[in-house]
C-alpha cells in the first residue's frame, strides 16, 4: 500500500484532520479518484492546478499519469510557481 500524505489544510477541509492514509493506487489519477470516493469534493481541489504531488521525493505538477508504486510515499503540497 502506498502511503499518502495530505496537507493540513486538506485534512481540515475534507478528512476531519486525518492527513496520512494507506491506499492501493496505480497512478495519480487513480489516487485522486479514490480519494474523492472517500472524501467527496477533494478531487476538485486536487485537480484545479493549485496542488502538486511528490512521489518518492520527486515533485510532479499536473501529472495524472505518473505511476505510484505499491510502497510509494506520496505527498500533496501546494503547486510551486516561479519567478
Amino acid at each position: 500500500m502506498a502511503q499518502i500524505v495530505l496537507t493540513n489544510d486538506l485534512g481540515r477541509q475534507f478528512t476531519g484532520g486525518e492527513t496520512t492514509l494507506d491506499m492501493d493506487v496505480t497512478d495519480v489519477r487513480d489516487l485522486i479518484r479514490k480519494l474523492d470516493q472517500k472524501f467527496p469534493g477533494i478531487a476538485e481541489v486536487l485537480q484545479d492546478g493549485s496542488m502538486a504531488v511528490a512521489i518518492d521525493g520527486n515533485l510532479h505538477q499536473d501529472a495524472w499519469l505518473e505511476d505510484i508504486g505499491p510502497t510509494s510515499e506520496v505527498y500533496f503540497l501546494p503547486a510551486i510557481r516561479g519567478g
Binding site: V5, A54, D56, G57, N58, L59, E73, Y75, F76, L77
Partner: peptide, 17 residues
C-alpha cells in the same frame, strides 16, 4: 551537522532525493 540530505524529510512533506 544538521544538513538536509538525500532521504531527509523536507519541512513541506516529501523526502529529498
Amino acid at each position: 551537522l544538521n544538513a538536509a540530505k538525500e532521504g531527509t524529510t523536507a519541512p513541506y512533506g516529501p523526502k529529498f532525493g
